[in-house]
Design a protein around this nucleic acid. Sequence first.
DNA 1: GCCTATATTGAACGCATGTGCAATACGCGA
DNA 2: TCGCGTATTGCACATGCGTTCAATATAGGC
Lengths: 207, 207
Amino acid sequence: MPGTKIAESIRREHVIAAAYEIAATEGLRAVTIRDVAARAGMSTGLVLFHFKSKDQLVLELVDWVLATTTALQVGRDILAIASPLERLVALLAQEMARLSSEPARMRLFFEFWAAGLSDAGIRRRMQPELDRYREAFRPIAEAVLAAEPDRFPHTTPDGLAAVAVTFIKGCAVQSMIDPDLDINQFLAAAEGLLRRPPSMSAPVSIT
Amino acid sequence: MPGTKIAESIRREHVIAAAYEIAATEGLRAVTIRDVAARAGMSTGLVLFHFKSKDQLVLELVDWVLATTTALQVGRDILAIASPLERLVALLAQEMARLSSEPARMRLFFEFWAAGLSDAGIRRRMQPELDRYREAFRPIAEAVLAAEPDRFPHTTPDGLAAVAVTFIKGCAVQSMIDPDLDINQFLAAAEGLLRRPPSMSAPVSIT
DNA sequence: GCCTATATTGAACGCATGTGCAATACGCGA
DNA sequence: TCGCGTATTGCACATGCGTTCAATATAGGC
C-alpha cells in the first residue's frame, strides 16, 4: 500500500542523508540499499526508483561529501596577514582544525579515497576536486616563494602547495584514528618548524 | 580427490601471499575465500581449515602488512649526521621515499586504517604498531628540541614526533593516488620549510 | 469524477559469499 | 601391511545483497 507522494528532490536528499549517516558511522561496507531505505523511512524499491543503481547512489554520496569537505575558504582575516609565510601557517592551522573537527566526515572521505584506487568511477569524481583544493593553495605558495627566494632554491609553487596539502591530509588522517589529538600541540610543533628561528611572535590562535 | 599434503606453515604463507596480492591490487572488498583459495591453488575448504574463519585470515594479513610497513630503520648514515634537525630531515626523506615507493602496500595499509575505525579487531592490531612507529621518532625529536629550545617554546618531544609521522603519512597518502609524485620536488619544498633560512647545504639525496 | 502519468510498495529472483560437513586421500608409526 | 590421525576436497546450506517487477495508491489535468 504505497504512501504519500513527496517531491523528488526531497526524497533524494533524505536518501543521501541516510546513506551518509550509515557510511560515516559504520563504514562504506554497511551501506546497503535496504539499510539506507529503512533509515530514510521508505521501501527498497523507492531508493532504486530515484537512484538508478546502488553505484549511482554511492557516486552521488561522493559528490555530496566532497562538496562539504574540499572547499577551501580563505577569509579576510587570513588575507590581512602581511607575512606570506605567516599567512600560509594560518591557513594550515585553519584547515587542520576544520578537518580534524569532523573525524567521521574525514573517515568517509578517506574510505572513498581508498575505494577510488580500484574504482574508476569514484576516482573520476574525486581527482578534479582534489586538484582544485591544491590549486587554491597556489597563490599563497607563490607569495611565500617570492618573499624568500633564497630559502627555497629548488622549489616550485606547485611543489610547495602540494606539501601544504600533504601536511593537512596527514593531520586529518591522524585525527581520524585519534580523535583526542591535541591540535594546538600539533600546531606549536609545526610552527616551530616553519617559522624563522629568531621569531618571537605569539602562537597562532584557532577559532 | 584430495591432493598431496604440504606442511602447514607453507600453506599458511601461500594463503597470506595470495590474499595480499588480491587485496593490494583489487582492494580488500575483493578478498574472498574462494578467490584466495583459487590464487593459492587449493580448495576453499582448505583455507578455512588453516585459518578458522575469514576474519582470522584478514587479521593475520593485517599483521603481515604491518610487519613490513611500520618498521622504522635508522641506519648508521643517518645517526652520523651531526645536526639533529638535519638528522630528522634525512629520516623524513628516507621514510617518504620508502613508503611512496610501494603505493600498493600503502593503499592496503590505509584500507586497513579505514577498516579499523569500525572494526575493533583490526584496530587492536594496528594501534600498538603505529604507537611504536611514532615512538621510534622520539629520540631524534628530543635531540631537535634540545638543540634549539628557543625555536620550539611550547613543543614536546611527543608532539614533534607526531608531526613528523603525520608528514610521512600525508606523503604516503598522496603517493597512493598519485604514483608519479615527484618526491625530490616534494623534499626540496619541505627542506626549505624546515631548514634555517641562511643555510646553503646541499639537497638531501635519496638512496 | 474520471484518467493517466507518476510515485510507492513489498515480494521475488539470481547471485555471491562465509561456513559446515561428509567423503576421501595421504603419510607415518606399528 | 595395516590403521589412524591429519590434510584435502567439493558440495550444500543459509544469508545477505542488488535488482526486477507486477500491483497499487496518489496527484493533477480535463
